[in-house]
Design a protein around this nucleic acid. Structure first.
Length: 339
DNA sequence: AATGCGGGGGG
DNA sequence: CCCCCAGCATT
């Protein structure tokens, strides 16, 4: 397929040296910066993570400061980014490293730490420690599927990752593994994009079978999980400058310890009640669910509930101090403007 | 191997 | 509206 691995690696690295984006974890490289950025970038685009990364480094500049921080503070700085177990795992990881006798120096050693799988172990090892381990993320899968013109219909992303890991390691430049890995991902993020790849600018076009065959856009072919529809009805209730919120239990599977607008169900109400008035409705996606959420207000004559257990009356002035998921935070802000 | 986990970017 | 994003842990 590829005549000269040496030519391939040179072309890729030359392009990366000349075209890489300026990013804070590249400008100021360190083990800590690499670890934090890789956690934030799990299933999250660079553009989205960037402001979080900057704020994080000011508040938690190193492993030691992170290890010592309260979980609540750590989550507050992750608020809105999603996948909150990443923050909890990063926090635990910092504590592990501070306690450890030695820093891990192989992918397998990194994988023993919380929140680190195949991808992140290879990324940290190669970028921060010059270890020759290839990363295979969504970008790399796309680049390699096109490079080899592989039209396999993968039944999952994991299957594609597994298949392309072999090739990724064969192609990896062991002299500069961190840059070679980042170059493949940078290529996938900027030129070899899903929609309209800019093949004419691609440093790999002379090696790319997909380009030569003329149809790289359709690759890779991966069957995705079907989405299911869910309906949620919630209450927006304010009494005397306090908003009624529901605190998600610490043993819940998602959004543990976050606050949200209480569901009508939890309040013992149904959407058909005469005392409810529809305020607004929005649709959003979570994982493979499409949630249609409708918010109602309750007649001011009725006083719904005491402050007890998972229900809290939060003073509007202190709303910024509690943990809120992104959508609920925006929702509350919008509804307060409306009133 | 399949599923759940947030949220947002961009076509 | 859709797919996808520098994935991981659990089952």
């Amino acid at each position: 397929m590829i005549d000269s691995y040496s030519d391939f690696r040179s072309a890729l690295l030359l392009w990366y040296d000349q075209n890489q984006r300026m990013l804070p974890w590249r400008t100021k490289p360190s083990l800590y910066n690499t670890v934090v950025s890789e956690f934030m970038l799990q299933q999250t685009q660079i553009k989205t993570a960037l402001p979080y990364f900057e704020r994080w480094l000011i508040r938690f500049p190193d492993f030691h400061s992170l290890a010592e921080a309260e979980t609540e503070s750590v989550l507050k700085y992750w608020e809105g980014l999603g996948y909150y177990n990443r923050a909890r795992n990063l926090h635990k990881l910092a504590q592990c490293l501070v306690d450890a006798d030695a820093i891990p120096d192989t992918p397998d050693a990194w994988k023993a730490l919380p929140g680190i799988g195949d991808y992140t172990a290879a990324a940290i090892s190669s970028i921060a420690q010059n270890h020759p381990s290839a990363v295979v993320d969504g970008n790399v899968v796309r680049v390699l599927a096109r490079l080899t013109n592989d039209d396999t219909n993968f039944s999952s992303n994991a299957q594609a990752v597994k298949q392309f890991t072999v090739l990724a390691n064969q192609l990896l430049d062991s002299k500069r593994p961190g840059d070679a890995n980042q170059a493949m991902m940078e290529l996938g993020a900027t030129l070899c994009t899903k929609g309209q790849p800019q093949c004419q600018c691609c440093p790999l076009k002379t090696f790319c079978l997909g380009f030569q065959a003329g149809k790289p856009e359709g690759l890779p072919a991966i069957t995705r999980a079907k989405r299911t529809q869910v309906q949620e009805n919630r209450a927006f209730i304010i009494r005397e400058q306090r908003l009624l919120l529901y605190k998600i239990p610490s043993d819940a599977k998602r959004l543990k310890d976050h606050y949200e607008l209480p569901s009508l169900e939890a309040l013992g109400l149904t959407k058909d009640s005469k005392h409810l008035k529809k305020l607004t409705s929005k649709k959003r996606g979570i994982s493979n669910q499409v949630i249609t959420e409708t918010v109602y207000e309750l007649d001011t004559a009725l006083n719904p509930i005491e402050e007890k257990e998972p229900f809290y009356w939060i003073d509007l002035k202190s709303i910024d101090r509690i943990l809120l998921s992104g959508p609920h935070k925006r929702w509350i802000r919008d509804l307060l403007m409306l009133l």
